[in-house]
C-alpha cells in the first residue's frame, strides 16, 4: 500500500522533473549563457514570492476553492509595509508583522464570507481583488513608494549563494507539505476538496478548516509582498496584477486539480520553477513578446495534458 503510494509520488516528480530538464536542456542548447550558475541563481532570486503565493493557492485549490485576490492582497501588504517603514519609521519586524497581519485579515474576510453565507469563493475573492487593490491605492496615495536600504538587506543576505527569500520560500514549501501530509488539518483539506458533504458528515469542522485555508493564503500573499518589496526596494500600488492567474497556472502545472481533493505543495514548487525557467529562457533567447505568450500558454496546457496521462499510470 505504502509502496504503491511511494511509486506514484515518484512518477509525479519524475514527470515534472523531466519537463523541467527538457526545458533547461533546450535553452542551454539555444543560448550562450543559460546553462550557467548565474542563470540559476537569478531564477532562484526571482521565484520566492511566486513560490509562496502558489503555496497558499495550492491549499485553496485542494479544498476546491479559489482565491483571486492574492495579487491585490500582495499589493496591499506591500503598501502597508512601505507606509510603516517610510512614514512611521517603524522597525522592520513591526512593519513585517503589520504587513502579514493585513494579509491574514484579508484572508479571514474572504473565508468568513465563504463560510458564513456559503457564497462562491470565486465571487467573494473577486470582490476582495477589487477592494484590496483600492486599499493599496489609498495607502500609497497611488504613488510608488521608494523604501530603500531599510529593506534591501533581506534580499542581500545569503547562504551559499542562495538568498534569504529563497530559503524562506523553501521553508514555506516544506512546512506546507508537512501540514498537508502529516496533520489532521491537512487531511481534512483533502477530505473537504474530495467531498465536502461527506467530510461534514464524518465530523470534520469544515467551516473552521476553510477559514484557516483562506487565512493561510492571505497571510502567505502578504509574506510574498515582503519579499517582492525587498527585491524591488519599493512598494508599488500596481504590484501583483495578474499574479492570481500565474499562481493558479503554477499550481495546475504541478498537477493539483482545480476540482479539489488532490495536489501537493512540492509539485507546485516544480510548477513555479517551470514557468520561471521558461520566462527567463525566452528572454535569453531574445524571443519577442507575442511568441513568449504563445509558448507560455502552450506549455501550461501541455503540462495539464501530460498530467492527465500521468494519472492513468
Amino acid at each position: 500500500m505504502y509502496g504503491r503510494y511511494l511509486l506514484r509520488s515518484l512518477v509525479d516528480y519524475i514527470g515534472l522533473a523531466a519537463v523541467l530538464a527538457l526545458l533547461i536542456a533546450a535553452f542551454g542548447f539555444a543560448t550562450d549563457y543559460f546553462f550557467t550558475w548565474t542563470t540559476f541563481r537569478t531564477i532562484a532570486n526571482q521565484i520566492p514570492d511566486a513560490v509562496i503565493l502558489a503555496t497558499g493557492m495550492t491549499f485553496v485549490l485542494i479544498i476546491a476553492g479559489i482565491d483571486l485576490s492574492v495579487g491585490s492582497v500582495l499589493a496591499l501588504g506591500g503598501a502597508v509595509l512601505g507606509l510603516a517603514l517610510v512614514r512611521w519609521q517603524a522597525p522592520l519586524p513591526v512593519a513585517i508583522l503589520a504587513c502579514v497581519g493585513v494579509g491574514i485579515l484579508c484572508g479571514a474576510v474572504n473565508g468568513f464570507f465563504v463560510v458564513r453565507w456559503q457564497l462562491p469563493a470565486f465571487i467573494v475573492t473577486l470582490g476582495m481583488l477589487e477592494a484590496a487593490r483600492g486599499g493599496a491605492y489609498l495607502v500609497t496615495g497611488s504613488k510608488t513608494q521608494y523604501i530603500g536600504t531599510g529593506i534591501e538587506w533581506i534580499n542581500r543576505g545569503n547562504f551559499m549563494g542562495l538568498s534569504l527569500p529563497f530559503l524562506c520560500a523553501m521553508l514555506v514549501v516544506l512546512a506546507g507539505q508537512f501540514l498537508l501530509s502529516y496533520t489532521t488539518a491537512g487531511r481534512s483539506m483533502y477530505a473537504i476538496g474530495g467531498n465536502e458533504e461527506a467530510a461534514r458528515l464524518s465530523g470534520i469542522a469544515v467551516g473552521r478548516v476553510k477559514l484557516l485555508v483562506y487565512m493561510i493564503c492571505g497571510g502567505l500573499a502578504s509574506l510574498a509582498a515582503v519579499i517582492h518589496c525587498a527585491r524591488l526596494t519599493a512598494a508599488d500600488p500596481n504590484a501583483g496584477i495578474g499574479y492570481e492567474l500565474q499562481a493558479i497556472a503554477a499550481v495546475v502545472i504541478g498537477g493539483t486539480s482545480l476540482m479539489g481533493g488532490r495536489g501537493k505543495v512540492i509539485n507546485t514548487l516544480f510548477g513555479v520553477i517551470i514557468i520561471a525557467v521558461l520566462e527567463s529562457g525566452l528572454v535569453q533567447i531574445g524571443a519577442q513578446e507575442p511568441l513568449k505568450r504563445l509558448v507560455t500558454g502552450g506549455i501550461i496546457v501541455a503540462a495539464v495534458i501530460i498530467d492527465y496521462y500521468r494519472r492513468k499510470i
Binding site: Y33, T36, T42, Q46, R231, E279, S280
Partner: peptide, 11 residues
C-alpha cells in the same frame, strides 16, 4: 522589467 533585466544581464 525586473525579471526581464535579470535574465538579460546574464545573457
Amino acid at each position: 522589467a525586473n525579471q526581464v533585466v535579470s535574465a538579460l544581464i546574464t545573457e
